[in-house]
């Protein structure tokens, strides 16, 4: 299966990465090459095989449901590109 320009545009949109119109044909070509490489997987008989969900057969640990930190608003906002009045600031989302 090869990826056409329309699919490349849709994937870029879903990934929230801006790609110029002029860049789409090259992107489609690169993605097609990788997808073709992946298609070797179709040769494998996977009948009755469960998809692997955990790497090691151990139960995930659960921790106690307690507060372990807090009151660190300053630390959380420290690296924000735009923080105002104790909030992350972004362009208007709701009219």
């Amino acid at each position: 299966m090869s990826i056409d320009i329309e699919t490349a545009r849709r994937v870029a949109k879903l990934a929230r990465i801006r790609v110029d119109e002029a860049g789409l044909p090259a992107l489609a070509g690169e993605l097609s090459g990788i997808v073709q490489f992946m298609e070797q997987l179709n040769e494998v008989d996977v009948t009755g095989i469960e998809p692997m969900t955990s790497v090691t057969p151990m139960r995930l640990k659960r921790r106690a449901d307690i507060v372990t930190d807090g009151n660190i608003q300053g630390a959380i906002l420290k690296n924000a590109p735009d923080a105002r009045e104790g909030f992350f600031a972004v362009p208007k989302v709701v009219e």
């Binding site: 990826i3 699919t7 490349a8 994937v11 870029a12 879903l14 990934a15 990465i17 992107l27 993605l31 990788i34 997808v35 992946m38 997987l41 179709n42 494998v44 996977v46 095989i49 469960e50 998809p51 692997m52 969900t53």
Partner: peptide, 21 residues
């Protein structure tokens, strides 16, 4: 973008689930 593609509706089983098998 490749990851987005293989996880997108309609391709998840064909690529991602097959790869996990």
């Amino acid at each position: 973008m490749i990851g987005t593609y293989v996880l997108s509706a309609g391709f998840y089983d064909a690529y991602y689930n097959r790869a996990r098998k």
